[in-house]
Write a protein that binds this DNA or RNA. Structure first.
Lengths: 232, 232
DNA sequence: CCGGATCCGGTTAGATACTG
DNA sequence: CAGTATCTAACCGGATCCGG
């Protein structure tokens, strides 16, 4: 009998033994969202120590949730992918996030702003379909932040993953978004909209009119943005 | 910023901060299943220390998931009930249990047999509707266990909660179930059926023919019994 | 750079006993 | 019945370091 076990045959307890340890659900959210490399995962859970990340990945591998394999291109590199059992955890992660969006207060969420996490999340949810069939560069400027965290560039190339930079890539910028971190997070979380914040003067958009016009379309929101809140 | 926090605005992380600490999901399963009293909860999570149970209940109260109140009948006693936010966690608990039933191996579950937990779970899932409109007493005998954990009595009174005893209540017994702990657990989990184990000689039923005939009906199974397994 | 391992101090949890 | 108190063991966070 394992020491840390709840020792209950109930499936809830059996699953919770694997899933409900510190950082595990947040790590699984990253894996479900599509991150596969060690340092890519670190970026999604920056406050988790690499030692603990390594341990959790091993635990998840032992539980049959994650598979570790060498990257085809470069056999010195590894990737972590979800097994069938792991992919099936998407429902659990979504149920938890749905509850969080419904019942955690906005003030509580907005007390944990982080431009790095926000941009990283935005990056992987951008809908490239409605964007032009050429490279587009969007610069996001958080007017309330210090120089080092103020400027971000999203580089969208058709048929490729979106790139995120925190140093100027040197391309001509097609669209500028000037706002504060809280407002951008509120839009991303579905607490408010592009139109509302723009007319309130909290979001200023300049550049390509086409990109501006369908901003709310190509700027994908948080997967939980459409879940209705039950508390303020 | 709280020390133990993940510091992420994402609703998954916000919710996991509250829900994914040791024992919390198992405790919530008990609350969702309807237990309300401190010692009733202890019975459902017997390996959780009372100190930790007390702490978790306070944490859940602070999170708006549980409400603590004096019992109407006797103001010296307390009860813990789920708030709206707490009841809404039923979906999360179910999603976790569903995943557990699908992906945890039967051998792994059946390595954690516990007659106390099994009988306690059976007790609250018995369907009293198809039972006679008088008191029925069912004695369960685990032939493979030692004297102290071998005999259990379920006393069903119409319009009341089912009683569970581990000492002879002295009533005439209407139905005897003689089996081993593993077989009874397998039936409860939906891994096998009354009919199968009976014809295999692993379950022997004697007593009232009416009770015997619709045993599989009034003996409610685990809430996850109908979830199909994806692994052996 | 990538993918970790090591070490150390602080926090959390388990075991057991005890109390109003 | 409904919890505290106390002591110990396990786990976690943060920093640093290492091999390819």
């Amino acid at each position: 009998m394992a020491e840390g076990s709840y020792n209950q045959f109930c499936p809830v307890a059996m699953a919770a033994e694997i899933l409900c340890t510190r950082w595990t659900i947040v790590l699984l959210r990253e894996l479900v969202a599509g991150s596969t490399r060690f340092n890519e995962l670190r970026r999604g859970v920056p406050r988790m120590s690499p030692a603990l990340l390594s341990k959790r990945l091993k635990d998840l591998e032992a539980a049959g949730i994650v598979a570790r394999s060498r990257l085809a291109g470069d056999p010195a590199l590894y990737e972590y992918t979800l097994t069938s059992a792991g992919k099936d955890l998407g429902q659990v992660v979504f149920a938890i996030g749905e509850w969080g969006q419904k019942w955690v207060t906005t003030e509580s969420s907005l007390g944990k702003l982080d431009p790095n996490l926000l941009m990283w999340d935005m990056r992987r949810n951008i809908n490239t379909k409605p964007l032009p069939q050429r490279r587009s560069t969007i610069q996001v400027i958080f007017s309330d932040l210090q120089e080092a965290r103020r400027n971000w560039w999203l580089i969208v190339e058709p048929g490729a993953d979106v790139d995120l930079c925190s140093v100027d890539p040197g391309f001509d910028v097609d669209l500028y978004l000037v706002t504060d971190l809280r407002t951008m997070t509120e839009i991303w979380m579905g607490y408010t909209t592009v139109a509302q914040t723009k007319s309130a003067g909290r979001l200023v958009i300049t550049g390509n009119r086409q990109l501006e016009a369908n901003l709310q379309t190509w700027l994908g929101l948080s997967p939980f943005a459409q879940v209705e809140k039950s508390v303020a």
